[in-house]
């Protein structure tokens, strides 16, 4: 055996191992990711275009799409402001109880969506803590839009903050200090220095939060009450049609959500690519000295 081959053997897997690993890994991904994705669209178009179009051009489906969009519309701004505030406090300052705060922000990732739904049912439901008071003032929270917005806020609360904290920690606070020493006000510093530096991370967090907000099922299911045409988001609509053995209808709506997932993945990949390019630019070797 030649020396070069021996070196290669020691530093890389033999060819058959590479082929085997590639086969196993890609096969796994095919069966668990690609096939389900194809199946969504396959089932949706199983009986042709017209049946698909008809399934979507249905008042209940359209109202479900509208409700899904309005939930996201209410949830995202809150998420954005909270994420920015939390990341600013955590990344740029030192204070006691910081790691506890970070754990608390992570909590919604760990709690089962069903438990989240139940928790808000216990507070705002008819027998809940605020139930009687809300009923007396004719405010509907549970089995109505407000309840669905609140549970979705709970579920998506970590996304933006989780993206921004490590990013802002890595960037440090020298640029902000420089801006202040040059006479910028707090707002000018934030708008001209901080925001441009974190814009991609912010967008990344919002994309993830949006996907989750539009797709959340368990928690919303508990507090929605499943009132057709009123409190059904798109995922809930999918469930109802599926349980009624309306496969084409269910998969037509599901295909809309799958499309949303694909757009999310695309946007995420683009943002990731932009972020990676910027970090590479920052890490690039200094060019040689010249005057």
């Amino acid at each position: 055996m030649s020396g070069a081959a021996a070196v290669k053997r020691a530093l890389a897997e033999p060819r058959w191992v590479r082929v085997l690993l590639l086969g196993v890994g890609l096969g796994f991904l095919f069966f668990f990711l690609a096939l389900p994705l194809l199946a969504v669209f396959g089932e949706a178009f199983a009986t042709g275009w017209t049946a698909y179009a008809k399934a979507l051009d249905d008042p209940e489906a359209l109202s479900a799409i509208g409700l899904t969009l309005s939930v996201a519309l209410f949830v995202l701004p809150g998420n954005l402001v909270f994420g920015l505030a939390a990341a600013w406090a955590i990344a740029k300052f030192d204070f006691r109880g910081k790691s506890l705060l970070i754990t608390l922000i992570d909590l919604p990732f760990a709690v089962s969506p069903v438990v989240v739904g139940l928790v808000f049912l216990l507070i705002f439901g008819a027998q809940g803590l605020f139930g009687p008071w809300l009923a007396a003032h004719e405010i509907k929270v549970v089995f109505a839009l407000p309840g669905m917005i609140i549970v979705t806020m709970f579920i998506t609360c970590p996304f933006v903050a989780r993206e921004l904290i490590p990013l802002m920690q890595a960037q440090g606070k020298e640029e902000e200090e420089a801006a202040l020493s040059l006479g910028a006000t707090g707002w000018q510093m934030f708008r001209r220095v901080t925001l441009p530096n974190i814009k991609w991370g912010l967008m990344y967090g919002v994309i993830l939060a949006n996907a989750r907000a539009m797709g959340e099922f368990g928690a919303v299911s508990v507090v929605s009450g499943h009132i057709r045409g009123q409190t059904n988001t798109l995922p809930l609509h999918v469930e109802i049609l599926y349980n009624e053995y309306n496969a084409v209808g269910a998969f037509a709506s599901a295909s809309v959500l799958a499309l949303l997932a694909l757009v999310t993945l695309l946007a995420k990949t683009i943002v990731e690519w932009r972020m990676r390019r910027e970090t590479l630019m920052l890490k690039a070797e200094l060019p040689p000295e010249k005057n």
């Binding site: 389900p36 969504v40 995922p235 949303l260 997932a261």
Partner: peptide, 26 residues
Amino acid sequence: KRVVDSLVDLPFALPTAVAGITLATL
């Protein structure tokens, strides 16, 4: 490779109900 790498996040992006009915059908 890039497409495959992006696809790994599908379970994060795909609503769980969609995953549920699709897997059940498959």
